[in-house]
Design a protein around this nucleic acid. Structure first.
Lengths: 148, 148
DNA sequence: ACCCATATTTAGAATAATTCTAAATCTTGA
DNA sequence: TCAAGATTTAGAATTATTCTAAATATGGGT
């Protein structure tokens, strides 16, 4: 699309990444990925649907779920489950963890995490560890100040 | 209830714990807690409901949710959200993490974890960290061996 | 370019998970 | 004993996710 520097390096990988998992690049998958990158506020499937719909009115909810699954499967998006509510989606594939405010439910990316390497977690024989998900729970600045 | 050694030390705390959060000890809350401690296989609310119902036939689903919420709130039970499916509940309040098999969905307690102290995670100003939830993702022994 | 096999999308129905509601019941403390 | 408030209950309502079957799109081989 542009000959110059890629503003969105991973966008250019989308096709390869999908292909690597035996999946095709489709306008819908592109759109869903774009929606996620545009506003990285950990939207739910429903929010992704509404945002995608505004650009691509024919897209359906089922497709959004399909696309999210495809993007998760090929490693372009992370699924984030923090509470009993709807699952959220995060296109930031850098190692990072999520801070979840137990009070108001807001989510923040925290650019630090524990990797299988620097953790000294030992699993019983036979387990194969792929990655460690770190969720930080507490109060966000807003709620912390309200709480005295 | 018994003068001897407590087989279930946290059971005896239930009342205090609830009281400390301004909650009452009720037969239903006791039952739900018992169900969880009886088989620590990370059941969903629905499974807890069925198990509790067999001992206390009049209990309702809404009550199970209420009780689980009360137990979580007073720190007697942990909520575990690992995928898009139903939330699971864990009465083991020792520091530990959960291993989740991405293939078959089974969950194992792993008696190691990262605590706020031994992690050197620094949060931006204002955040108040309460606890770190560590979820290990990968393949369980069964699925790992099947996967070559 | 044309055809095929397969992948993907779609709307809507179906299911699953969770929350809400309003009435009944149970405590607790004055 | 009473009143206020907490808790439980059944069932309805809502929300989240998955399923289904038909329509459409795509890529590879000719």
């Amino acid at each position: 699309m542009n000959a110059g520097a890629d503003k969105f390096p991973s966008e250019s990988n989308l096709n390869e990444r999908l292909a690597h998992s035996g999946l095709r690049l489709t306008p819908q998958r592109q759109q869903v990925h774009e929606v996620l990158r545009e506003k990285m506020d950990h939207p739910t499937a429903d929010q992704v649907f509404m945002r995608a719909k505004s650009k691509m009115p024919e897209i359906s909810m089922a497709t959004v779920y399909n696309c999210l699954d495809a993007l998760v499967q090929c490693g372009m998006v992370r699924q984030v489950t923090l509470d009993r509510g709807a699952t959220r989606y995060c296109p930031n594939m850098q190692d990072h963890s999520h801070f979840y405010c137990d009070e108001c439910g807001s989510v923040y990316d925290i650019l630090q995490t524990i990797t299988p390497e620097d953790s000294d977690i030992k699993l019983p024989r036979g387990f194969r560890l792929k990655n460690i998900e770190t969720n930080l729970h507490g109060l966000c600045p807003d709620c912390a100040s309200k709480a005295k």
